[in-house]
């Protein structure tokens, strides 16, 4: 099932892969703290767009890099993006209705 493409890459590319994962991890941690900070400074209505966007962004980073859907057939990544977008939209509508 798993293509051995990564294993056959030169070692230069490998440290690149590890570096990429680590950077994504640091970014996700940062965005998490940022969204909490943002959420603490205002009501849900004021901070909704920022907090929600940060969360969806985090989700897509996780899907692309940790789940590794960046490199597979577009359909799968699109499905995940669609899930994030749908959930985000439903939450946004509900919060704006409140």
């Amino acid at each position: 099932m798993s293509a051995p493409t990564v294993a056959t890459l030169p070692s230069q590319g490998l440290s690149g892969a590890r570096l990429r994962l680590t950077l994504v991890w640091l970014l996700l941690m940062l965005l998490t703290v940022a969204s909490v900070e943002l959420g603490a400074h205002g009501t849900a209505r004021q901070t909704l767009s920022g907090v929600l966007l940060l969360a969806l962004l985090k989700g897509q980073f996780l899907v692309d890099h940790f789940m590794g859907l960046r490199r597979v057939h577009r359909v799968w990544r699109a499905l995940m993006a669609a899930w994030l977008a749908t959930v985000g939209a439903l939450i946004a509508i509900a919060f704006l209705l409140a």
């Binding site: 998490t32 969204s35 996780l62 789940m67 939450i91």
Partner: peptide, 23 residues
């Protein structure tokens, strides 16, 4: 196993802002 675990994480990311952050 990894795909499943990332899904658990992904769900928590949304759950966290929904329950804890947005109020």
């Amino acid at each position: 196993a990894g795909a499943w675990w990332h899904m658990v994480d992904l769900v928590w990311i949304i759950l966290f802002i929904l329950v804890y952050v947005l109020r």
